[in-house]
Amino acid sequence: MRGLSDKSLKRLNSKKGIKLFLTEENMTTAKAVRIVNHEVRLKRLQEELIQLQHWVKRNNEKVVVIFEGRDAAGKGGAIRRITQHLNPREFRVVALPKPTEEEKGEWYFQRYINQLPREGKIVFFDRSWYNRAVVEPVNGFCTQEEYNIFMNQVNDFERMIIESGIRLVKFYFSITKIEQAKRFREIKASPIKKWKFSTVDQKAQRLWDKYTGYKTTMFDKTNTELAPWIIVKANRKSKARLEAIKHLLNIIPYNHQEIDSYYH
Rank of each mutant, 00 (worst) to 15 (best):
F91C: 01
N37D: 15
K7M: 07
V134T: 03
I161Q: 11
L86P: 07
V93Y: 06
V138C: 12
R58Y: 06
R41C: 06
V93Q: 09
Q144W: 14
Q84E: 15
R80V: 04
K246I: 00
D260A: 06
H256K: 06
N152E: 15
K16Y: 11
P191N: 10
W129C: 00
Q115G: 01
I187W: 06
R58W: 07
G17F: 01
I79E: 02
R241W: 00
V40S: 13
P117H: 05
P97C: 05
A32T: 06
N152W: 08
K57R: 13
Y147T: 04
R159E: 09
K193Q: 15
T199M: 13
W55N: 00
A78Y: 01
A73G: 11
Y262R: 11
Y214L: 12
L248S: 03
K170L: 03
D6F: 13
S14R: 14
T176E: 12
R34W: 07
V36E: 09
A204D: 09
K10H: 12
M27F: 04
I166F: 08
G77M: 14
S14T: 10
K43V: 00
Q84I: 00
M218D: 08
L116A: 09
K7S: 09
G120F: 02
H247S: 08
P117Y: 05
F197T: 05
G74Y: 02
T23Y: 10
H85M: 09
E48Y: 03
F173C: 03
V134G: 04
L42Y: 03
L248H: 04
P97W: 10
N152S: 15
I230L: 10
E186T: 09
R81Q: 13
V64F: 04
Q46W: 08
V40G: 05
I230N: 11
E119C: 07
K215W: 01
M27L: 11
L116W: 05
T199E: 15
R167W: 01
A32H: 05
E101R: 14
S128I: 04
A32P: 09
G76T: 08
K16S: 07
I252C: 05
A244T: 09
I161L: 14
V56D: 02
F171E: 02
I192N: 13
I259M: 14
R58Q: 13
V123M: 10
E146W: 05
F197I: 06
E25T: 06
E158A: 07
N139C: 10
I161S: 10
Q257I: 02
L248D: 00
R236A: 13
I187Q: 04
W107M: 06
P97N: 08
S198W: 08
R183H: 04
R58E: 14
K75T: 00
E106N: 14
V64A: 08
D6N: 14
F184T: 01
A95H: 12
P137I: 00
K15Q: 11
H38W: 15
L12K: 12
P137R: 12
A73Y: 05
